[in-house]
Design a protein around this nucleic acid. Structure first.
Lengths: 164, 164
DNA sequence: TATTGTTATACTCTATAACTATA
DNA sequence: TATAGTTATAGAGTATAACAATA
């Protein structure tokens, strides 16, 4: 929400001497403009908030969605493999899976070949639900497109392709 | 760190029937590829980690840097104004400023005009330190450029300009 | 009444370490 | 000895609510 605030007067610091206004809408950022990290962080906040809102009716957050998607595309995966792939701590994945298993979207099945590990699968209910989630996620993606433009979204995906 | 893992074989799920390999480097993402939010999140993690590492010697994190930069460019700002501008909760800014004040980078000066509020200023030491931080931040920015390319970084800044 | 700074609480996420059962 | 899953703890970060002083 914060990042969608009006952004009309880009800057005012640096060159104008002193005693700046105490008005939030007139605050200059200076060196922050030109920092990729700052822009990316603000955008990431916006995009996650839109995702959470768009999938609010089904109560699915970005990380939960990514876990379901990866399991759906790679049934039988171990917890370690999912954690590694998504860059999630395995300790945290335990709790994420506890929740998804409680909601009957995911099953942990004891592996026959390595009795330490679990093979992860979607339940039938999980498959159905994921289809709906994907539909809503596509709607979210259209929101992104509406916010930054079709061309810009394409370029963004291209630029960041090898971070996925 | 996780996001810099080898990314050679893009996918393998969806079309190949069943019983996929249990090997983390071969896990397909499917629907996750094509989600701007996922790419942006992974990139943001990488970029923040590089920032933290590059400014590790001076022990300054991205949020601390943004607070110092905004105060440096707009001396006399109130806490509310800084919080609003950076999208930080004012409750959280209190603790951030406590830490920066303890380290002698920032002063809280009672406002004469509105005795509820504090006018924020860098100390002389804060000014000197910030100059060094900016130098290191520029080094970080060059790391970003090296990672995604000069052209791509420019485009990214252009695309996300109105989120800053 | 509303706002500024503050304190406090709760929940999410990240980072570790340690434990167990297996390998 | 190393690894998979689990449990626990501590630190950021976010979201709220409430309070005192002041407007």
């Amino acid at each position: 929400m914060t990042s969608s605030a009006a952004r009309t007067s880009p800057r005012n610091g640096a060159g104008n001497g002193k005693a700046p206004r105490n008005d939030a809408d007139e605050v200059g950022l200076d060196a922050l403009v030109g920092h990729a990290g700052y822009a990316v962080r603000r955008f990431q906040i916006w995009i996650f908030q839109d995702f959470i809102k768009t999938l609010g009716a089904v109560d699915i957050r970005p990380t939960q969605y990514s876990v379901l998607t990866v399991i759906g595309a790679n049934p039988g995966l171990s917890q370690m493999a999912v954690a590694k792939r998504l860059g999630i701590e395995r300790a945290r994945l335990v709790h994420l899976l506890d929740s998804l298993e409680q909601r009957k979207y995911v099953k942990r099945i004891k592996s026959k070949t390595d009795r330490r590990s679990h093979a992860l699968h979607l339940t039938a209910q999980g498959e159905t639900a994921l289809a709906r989630f994907k539909h809503l996620a596509a709607e979210h993606e259209r929101n992104v497109e509406a916010r930054i433009g079709r061309e810009n979204r394409q370029q963004l995906l291209r630029i960041l392709a090898d971070f996925t």
